[in-house]
Simulated assay, not measured.
Amino acid sequence: MQKDFWVFGYGSLMWRPGFSFEKAEPATLHGYNRSFCVYSHYYRGTPARPGLVLGLDPQKDADCRGVAFRISLEQKDAVVAY
């Protein structure tokens, strides 16, 4: 039997997740820091000159506050693809 599936939102995902969820609650991810460390041409920049968007950097003694979303197992594959 499969357990619950949770998604951690730490940036714009907190405010507009873009997928259905069963429950949302405040959460803290220990050992990670939110920073502009991911290059993207979807939300910033272009394919030739990608811009920086928020990502998670492992960092000792860091904490990242966000929202945990519980996803139904029926929606899991669609949410992962999203």
Rank of each mutant, 00 (worst) to 15 (best):
M1H: 10
Q2D: 12
K3I: 00
F5A: 03
W6G: 02
V7M: 10
G9W: 05
Y10F: 14
G11I: 09
S12K: 08
L13W: 02
L13N: 14
L13A: 03
M14K: 15
W15H: 13
W15Y: 13
W15M: 08
W15E: 12
P17D: 06
S20I: 03
F21Q: 04
F21H: 15
F21C: 11
A24W: 04
A24P: 04
E25A: 11
E25Q: 15
P26N: 02
P26C: 07
A27G: 02
L29S: 03
R34T: 10
S35M: 02
F36S: 09
C37N: 15
C37V: 15
V38S: 04
Y39T: 05
S40V: 06
S40P: 01
S40F: 00
H41Y: 12
H41W: 13
Y43V: 00
R44K: 15
R49G: 09
R49D: 13
G51H: 08
G51S: 09
L52I: 02
V53E: 08
L56N: 04
P58Y: 12
Q59K: 15
Q59I: 07
Q59W: 02
K60V: 13
A62C: 06
D63K: 14
C64G: 05
C64D: 10
G66D: 09
V67W: 13
A68H: 09
A68F: 01
R70M: 07
I71F: 08
S72N: 08
E74R: 13
E74A: 14
E74L: 09
Q75H: 14
Q75M: 09
Q75I: 00
K76S: 05
A78D: 14
V79H: 06
V80Y: 00
